[in-house]
Design a protein around this nucleic acid. Structure first.
Lengths: 335, 335
DNA sequence: CTGAAAGCGCTTACAG
DNA sequence: CTGAAAGCGCTTACAG
């Protein structure tokens, strides 16, 4: 014998019980429109006591709003630093929650945007946060065409896109400079190809540093190709043959593999070669020796991105590009 | 000059254009109710051509459905194997997508269910997947009281809860047996306390194995306490003093720290002590030596959980408890 | 300050 | 097989 599910109480029930109109109840709750102080109080007391909860769906329909935002995460087999996205997601959720918004999560695999399309077409969200963008980005093109409010974490070249990012160029410049000043001039750089905006920015910072110090960099030490991910062994061996002082690696998962190869090759860190990475994710946190890296506050990135999107949704003026600070964390691997 | 946003076409527009009623259009689309073959075809062609997309919100309001499911993830500082949850989430999303459902994501910190409460009270979802449960679980109590369909991944002692889990007891028994058969009898077990169902199940499996082999286990080698997480050093040192053959560790993040301490102590794996872990997450994948572990298909877990919830939402009969298989992956660390 | 009424975009008995 | 009408639970001009 299942216990009968209690029907939820509606605005009409409240109105009837109090002998006022639905209009009045609605106004008392929303705080919009003129309403008597005393009336308002009666309504508030009643709904408090009877535990009235507005039906967000109905509200949404009437206002053409959903109080949901869509967060699009990457969804690849070779997952790029999930840790970072996770913390970012925490930040988004925390911010969204404080203003009564919820997160509709979906994933984007390469440029397949079918899921995003469905969500948007079905009017399920008020805005979108893109956690990763491509050089040629179907998500951005779709959202721009549909005129849906959205922001990206990370940078993009598309015009008119609201972006929240860490200052990768400056961060990479600083890290590189520090290494150069230790008189370690031959630095190998491992990363994806320049198709990714973030790789592009970092490379600029890398070049900046060399220029500032009046050094010239050896272009042969730039290993920027997605293949590094799948054949770390070969890349590392090639690098070692080039007599380098330091290996700078853009992705912690790749760094982890680089370190493995070095160990197998009996190359000591930092004695034989220094190593530094671009995130301080948990993948590396227990490594011996500890690894020098850049540190970004991913949670803060999520918060700011969410706040910006919400402002955008409400028609407020927002900055076109927000750049967040970073830290350089020196550890044993570059001693 | 902003381009005017095109209003989406509605069911009324379609009806008018075709000279039929909204009822007919609705029926043509939903496939419910009798409708002329020819009429149906006309409607379908029209909506195809004019790219009509139903408004999920309105549909939801009319049907008292949302086509959303809520997924509740853990959100602790000391995050338990995020990798696992991530893959599980992929599975849920994949399944949900195929049937037109979306995922409303939220987090639960300890037993703070305010976010879940709000989502449910606002009628934002049709059902809930709980990714982690507690011995005393406010989430479960709340959902049961509100009569909301929900399932859990992992096990719980609460009555009447639909559960999808891996067979942890059996998995732990098998792994332990394999180790015992190598004549490694003194096995230390590191994990959280038995407050967690999963720890409880594993411990049962651990005991099963000893019993089956006619061995007696040394209760002093059971290190089941949440403190292990924050003071791995001490735990490991205590264990080493007890002259153990093998360390079995329930969480990959902890395993990673255990390995670090062993390295610092110049204890060799597997020569001086063997090590095995309970997940095959990426945290350990580049470790030298490679680590023996259990392998669970987290994505499959997510898929099955989602499928089960959806069945439940639609009023179908579902199994009270589903147990998924596992694999034991032997590597160098237990050689 | 308050209310009757129309509307958001869909579904679904009911009647024909 | 098809349609007029009521309803899902809210909001919001408009009128008083």
């Amino acid at each position: 014998m299942e216990k009968e599910e209690k029907k939820d109480i509606t605005i009409a029930d409240v109105a009837e019980a109090l002998g006022v109109s639905k209009t009045t109840v609605s106004r008392a709750i929303s705080g919009k429109g003129r309403i008597g102080k005393e009336t308002r109080k009666r309504v508030m007391e009643y709904i408090e006591e009877h535990d009235y909860k507005p039906n967000a769906i109905a509200k949404g329909l009437a206002q053409s709003k959903t109080y949901n935002i869509c967060v699009v995460m990457p969804r690849d087999y070779e997952v790029v630093d999930w840790n970072f996205f996770q913390r970012c997601l925490f930040g988004i959720q925390e911010m969204a929650e404080t203003v009564g918004y919820d997160i509709l999560l979906t994933m984007c695999q390469m440029n397949d945007i079918s899921s995003l399309e469905r969500i948007v077409a079905n009017h399920k969200v008020d805005g979108v946060i893109l956690m990763r963008t491509f050089l040629e980005d179907a998500q951005i093109e779709f959202l721009q065409q549909k005129n849906i409010p959205f922001v990206t974490t990370g940078s993009t070249n598309y015009e008119g896109v609201i972006q929240i990012d860490h200052n990768h160029r400056s961060a990479c410049r600083e890290l590189t400079s520090i290494i150069l000043m230790k008189n370690l001039k031959r630095i190998a750089l491992i990363g994806e190809d320049e198709g990714y905006m973030v790789t592009h920015s970092r490379l600029l910072g890398f070049r900046d540093a060399y220029e500032q110090q009046g050094e010239t960099l050896d272009e042969n030490l730039l290993y920027l190709s997605p293949e590094n991910r799948v054949r770390v062994d070969r890349t590392v061996k090639e690098i070692l043959e080039q007599n380098v002082d330091c290996i700078l690696c853009m992705d912690d998962a790749v760094t982890s593999r680089v370190l493995k190869v070095l160990r197998e090759q009996h190359v000591r860190v930092p004695q034989d070669v220094r190593v530094a990475s671009f995130y301080d994710s948990t993948i590396l946190e227990n490594h011996v020796p500890s690894i020098t890296s850049l540190a970004f506050d991913a949670k803060e990135l999520g918060k700011v991105a969410c706040r910006t999107l919400l402002d955008l949704v409400e028609g407020l003026e927002v900055k076109q590009k927000t750049l967040l600070p970073y830290e350089v964390v020196l550890k044993e691997s570059t001693k």
